[in-house]
Design a protein around this nucleic acid. Structure first.
Lengths: 248, 248
DNA sequence: GAGTGGTCTAGACCACAGA
DNA sequence: CTGTGGTCTAGACCACTCG
């Protein structure tokens, strides 16, 4: 026999998936649910923590517990490359994806100039180097879905469109690199899953128990020099990664 | 101020990472920890649940709570392809990876013949088709790290080495396909993260709260026919996925 | 049998949001 | 102010593993 809090979680999960509790709805309060299920409030709280970690629901102190549900996006390696050329970086692909789901894409961008943090400097092969840091927060109808941060060596980015806080770069990131004399020919990616930092959890408005993808993308020129490092942090349930590749 | 249970989790996490509690050690019991930290046992239990979900620790009823920690493996797209040719499927790459960490690789394999489940049949493009199902459980020094299941259409696999319950296929999976007249030239992969089913959690000996990678690999011949579907289920903290690809 | 973790309760106090 | 979720306690009973 399954523990009660798991049964309760399943009942609520089913109610949400079936649409009985639609996205945006506020669930009955924990006290009410407790009496409905005939259990203590602690148990209901434990059940709701499961749903929170799954991203089905978002409780807020003082306010109630709201249903927050988003179908997963997809990130195709092949499509990614194509869109990068056609539009302004990941923005184009993201917009299309979100719109296809009937949601409204939004962007926030901040551009700063900093010395590269250790892990980024490692990838760029230049410790202590100055970089332009383009930090974007992508939202779908007000729900934060992704934190994308690009690091570009200042010697490349200084005085270019990379330093403009525009949501997209006209003509595309890759072509701007080419124009500046640094055409990218190869990319390296490292995908891991971890728990978010408190800062990331705050910006993504998720529970610290909800795991996130941490995708590191490094773009290199023909001589093997890394000229672009981009990290993407996304709650795991918002993303499915797809790719197609030839077998040698 | 952080909640107490989070502080406790951090203290224990640090103690584990520093080696004060080495892998294999049994932690002090919850009652002992409770009195050490001056809190109720419920709180210690909650703190340990965090570490359990992270995979740092594995509690067992009746027995104590043991430290189970494994550094992440890596799964490189490029290396994967090379090893597939040189050795017997993922086995070779897995063995090398595990041995490099000073651990002992182990394998369990069961081969059955079934009608393809719906999602697999979708990929193979043949509903109701009979398939040979090679189901492997990979362990590192007794710790289950991966469930790998391959589905091969029975019309291809019947009477071949695919039906042998050997841990590896001599000469490699890909070359056997080529020998049988189905050379694979392209692969499609879909990576998602989800919570394990109860069955998977059991086989992997993990908490049902610990998220897993679900990797779907489809191998196709030149005419676009899918001839191999392999699913890999691995706790997220055991795996880092790396790949290198050219930019068009 | 003794000790472990798993579950659950009843109640408490707090921080917070909204009317 | 009221009601919400967040945290925490003290204690209970159970299922389990081990000697």
């Amino acid at each position: 026999m399954k523990p009660t809090y798991r049964e309760i979680a399943e009942t609520l999960r089913a109610a949400i998936r079936s649409g009985a509790h639609a996205p945006g709805d506020t669930l009955p309060s924990e006290s009410v649910l407790a009496s409905q299920f005939g259990v203590s409030r602690s148990l209901v709280n434990k059940a709701l923590q499961l749903l929170t970690a799954e991203g089905l629901v978002r409780p807020r102190q003082g306010d109630g517990t709201r249903v927050t549900w988003l179908p997963p996006l997809s990130r195709s390696g092949a499509r990614y490359q194509r869109n990068v050329r056609e539009q302004g970086g990941a923005k184009g692909a993201f917009d299309a994806e979100i719109r296809a789901l009937g949601l409204e894409p939004q962007h926030e961008i901040t551009v700063t100039r900093i010395t590269a943090p250790a892990n980024i400097a490692d990838q760029l092969g230049e410790t202590g180097a100055e970089v332009v840091c383009r930090s974007r927060r992508l939202l779908a109808s007000g729900i934060p879905v992704s934190l994308v941060t690009s690091y570009i060596p200042a010697v490349i980015a200084a005085g270019t469109a990379f330093e403009e806080p525009a949501p997209a770069i006209v003509g595309g990131v890759k072509s701007l690199y080419a124009t500046l004399g640094y055409p990218q020919v190869e990319a390296h990616e490292r995908i891991s899953v971890r728990l978010p930092t408190d800062e990331e959890a705050g910006k993504l408005e998720i529970s610290t128990e909800r795991s996130v993808f941490d995708i590191l993308h490094v773009g290199c020129t023909a001589d093997g020099r890394a000229v672009e490092v981009t990290t993407t942090v996304t709650p795991t349930n918002y993303l499915i990664i797809e790719s197609t590749f030839p077998l040698a």
